[in-house]
Design a protein around this nucleic acid. Structure first.
Lengths: 143, 143
DNA sequence: TTTCATGCAAAGGTTTTGCATACGC
DNA sequence: GCGTATGCAAAACCTTTGCATGAAA
């Protein structure tokens, strides 16, 4: 499960960030549409429909902030813009299958990589905080 | 091993692409600096120092072409620009460890994912052509 | 000679920044 | 009230495109 809005607000407060209406609106929008991999533009459109006064720059700044706090994860699926999704640190990771033809992104649950991660950390002396696995190919429709 | 320049030229010929001096120069530059994960700008600078008449657009077009031919692989390490490296299809995959502090990129060989890939292909009906695994963390120096 | 590739500059798209104003704490 | 956040517009980037010229096959 992703965090609740109260948990996120608490994270903000802990780091002395202000809880502004804009930040709350953006967080709520994310919680309502969390299933998708939203771009900044997606968020901006969703938010703008109900709160036209909000600015694009605020969306970008808020997404950056939430990514820094570890609430969101910034991803790149190769379509020229960043996309964001809730990071689910305590849970098992999920990975992405990206269709090279239609761009569809499927999710795939898996935690096989944990042991691999440990082995790599030991071998390279890296302190690994996260990993990201993407499969590229063609979905059933596009083959 | 990555392909030799002759093999790449042959690929071009097979698909009726012309072998221009610019394309040759860019391929040679890549072969000379193949160990790194070069951006278009990196290639442009390297190429420009010996052949100042070459244009940025040609670099982009050639990199795209080589990626289409399967010679290069376009990657994204989250620094706002695409990076390219030789794709080594016949060999075992290698993956990347990216330091979130200094941006260093380490490579890590592994082929544990082949069986996972098969299982996922079966479960999702995707025809998987490639995968990409990235670990994020902090390198020895930055911890 | 025909067709494709190049170079340049301009356009496109995404993200960041400067600055005056507004607002949370 | 202090200091941070916002909105707007401009700027900064990376990448793509249009078009006349030039070169490969």
């Amino acid at each position: 499960m992703s965090k609740t809005i109260e948990e996120i607000c608490q994270l903000l407060a802990e780091k002395d960030y202000k809880l502004t209406p804009q930040r709350r609106i953006i967080m709520e929008t994310f919680l309502e549409h969390g299933e998708r991999h939203l771009s900044a533009e997606d968020i901006y459109s969703l938010v703008k429909s109900k709160h036209p006064e909000i600015g694009m720059a605020t969306v970008y700044r808020t997404l950056d902030l939430l990514a820094d706090l570890g609430v969101l994860q910034k991803m790149n699926f190769g379509d020229g813009r960043s996309r964001y999704e809730f990071s689910e640190q305590d849970e098992h990771h999920h990975h992405h299958l990206i269709c090279l033809s239609c761009g569809e992104v499927l999710e795939f649950a898996d935690d096989l990589l944990d042991s691999l991660e440990k082995a790599i950390a030991e071998a390279t002396q890296f302190k690994i905080t996260d990993h990201q696995l993407k499969f590229y190919g063609y979905c059933k429709k596009c083959q």
